[in-house]
Write a protein that binds this DNA or RNA. Structure first.
Length: 478
RNA sequence: CGGGGUGUAGCGCAGUUGGUAGCGCACGUGGUUUGGGACCAUGGGGCCGGAGGUUCAAGUCCUCUCACCCCGACCA
């Protein structure tokens, strides 16, 4: 078999049609099904299981840093939503409204939460009285609704699952620390669990969250050169506190407003995994996020001893990795293709010849390398190979990010890159919203972030030529 | 919200000048198979997206609707 032979014929090649490739993968890997409600998806067990892994890993990190999970209502009274002006304006166009209970019209419309800032604020205003009540470090796992016009599985759906952390602090400094702490947790999680390298930075005024003082972001780059915002962390300062009257008495018996943050990641991360690691055979999952890390495929399973051996191995390994034994009567080749589409990191083949030789065959999903391993060494070999795959995927993704990151000094250079080799473009910027607008109009690219790691590529804004203030990562985004 | 496309079996499709629906895959059963998507036999499955109309007769022609997908403008 040639390495480059396309084994899975049901998936469109990503070079042929990236959008089609994406939806093919999403459907063929059994991650989701389309639902009867426009713009919404059904998470199938395999897709939901990835989300559960994400939840488990993040929950551990949130709890290690002192956060508690809570749950707020799905509905927000219109009056509550309207308390913070920028916030309402930002979300108004995509809010879904409840107008009736049964056949009776409600006296006040209820908004289906597009995000829960207002609910947390309302609650905080009641429960925070003293500096002794601070900080409040809350998080909630829930779904939110934003009535989007264009939708794509995971990347943009009308209802999506996410987590939103909402914290209240005594001082501006503490709030800023929290904002960055959570951004760093997201970045570490993306790299170590999802094997997705990210660029950390601050959003421009134009791109920041409605109602925030500052928004920080982690941005990643997909196979097609488009950027994907993977998570955001906002510093609200005391803006919401003033709108919602969240005050506490400090040590000197003075009334003070709290300083707040919020931060979130969503099921969009699953879209990122697909578009960063996937290939023409389908999904490729990093072991740390994979619902099933190892699939055992018995060969000639009707022959005496084969299934027994496969079951024995399954039992031995079940404590050291998440695995599945497929003893259905499908052909082995069918199983190989199926689990490649599903991105299971590692496959173990066990057949009569292997049993004779006291060995098994391991095949990696990421590079299809085969390795023959002694039956006695499985407990060492499996974790070793899984760790190696995890590491390899991150390295590969890092190389891609580096490869697709360009820099431009002039507008002409910028345009040429965006049109010919899409990716991140580093370029100096004067800080004006007008230049962002111009760039967007002429090239379709937006300022993804002002990275923490600044470089001085030149003294002048690549767009208007005036004095540059920041180096910005630009790109077309999902 | 604009532009394009598609709706016929679970999925993918065919269906000629209008004559009352077919193929592949999947599924059920029996058997033979199993190191890269097996084969034979046999069986089940349909208000042709919906509503009007034209006609003796509509999957097919006309009108109107609805849904979904894709591509753009706005957004986790």
């Amino acid at each position: 078999m040639k390495d480059d032979k396309k084994l899975v014929e049901e998936i469109t090649s990503m070079h042929e049609d990236f959008a089609k490739w994406y939806t093919d993968v999403v459907l063929k890997a059994d991650l989701v099904d389309y639902s009867s409600v426009g713009g919404c998806i059904i998470f199938r067990p395999y897709g939901y299981s990835i989300w559960e892994n994400i939840q488990r890993e993040l929950n551990r990190r949130f709890k290690e840093t002192g956060h508690e999970n809570v749950y707020m209502p799905l509905f927000i009274p219109e009056s509550l939503l309207q308390k913070e002006k920028d916030h309402v304006e930002g979300f108004a166009p995509e809010v879904a409204w409840i107008t009736h209970g049964g056949s009776e019209e409600l006296t006040e419309r209820l908004c289906v939460r597009p995000t829960s800032e207002t609910l947390f604020c309302d609650h905080y205003s009641k429960i925070i009285h003293s500096y002794r009540d601070l900080p409040k470090l809350y998080n909630q796992w829930c779904s939110v609704v934003r009535w989007e016009k264009t939708t794509r599985p995971f990347l943009r759906t009308r209802e999506f699952l996410w987590q939103e952390g909402h914290t209240a602090h005594a001082t501006a400094e503490e709030a800023q620390e929290e904002t960055i702490r959570m951004l760093n947790i997201y970045a570490e999680f993306c790299e170590n669990v999802l094997a997705i390298p990210v660029v950390k930075g601050r959003k421009t005024e134009r791109e920041k969250f409605a109602g925030a003082h500052a928004t920080f972001t982690i941005e990643s780059l997909m196979h097609d050169g488009k950027a994907l915002q993977c998570g955001t962390s906002h510093n609200f300062g005391d803006g919401f506190a003033k709108a919602f009257d969240i005050q506490y008495t400090d040590k000197n018996n003075q009334l003070q407003y709290v300083h707040q943050t919020s931060w979130g990641v969503s099921t969009r991360l699953i879209g990122a995994i697909i578009m960063v690691h996937g290939d023409d055979s389908g999904l490729v999952l990093p072991p740390n996020a994979a619902p099933i890390q190892l699939v055992i495929v018995p060969i000639a399973q009707h022959k005496p001893g084969v299934l027994e051996k496969a079951r024995e191995i399954s039992g031995r390994l079940s404590g050291i990795c998440r695995l599945k034994l497929d003893d259905s009567d499908k052909m082995p080749g069918w199983k190989f293709s199926e689990y490649e589409m599903k991105g299971i990191p590692l496959r173990l083949e066990i057949g009569p010849k292997d049993i004779e030789n006291n060995q098994v065959v391991l095949v990696r999903r990421d590079n299809r390398q085969k390795e023959i391993v002694s039956m006695d060494d499985l407990e060492n070999a499996i974790p070793r190979v899984l760790a190696d795959i995890q590491k390899g995927l991150l390295e590969k993704a890092r190389a891609m990010l580096k490869d697709k990151t360009y820099s431009a000094k002039t507008f002409a250079e910028f345009e040429k890159i965006i049109n010919e080799t899409p990716g991140f473009i580093k370029a100096m910027w004067c800080g004006s919203s007008e230049c962002e607008e111009t760039v967007k109009e002429k090239t379709g690219a937006t300022a993804r972030c002002i990275p923490f790691e600044q470089e001085e590529l030149s003294q002048k804004c690549f767009c208007c030529g005036k004095e540059a203030r920041h180096m910005v990562y630009w790109g077309k985004a999902y």
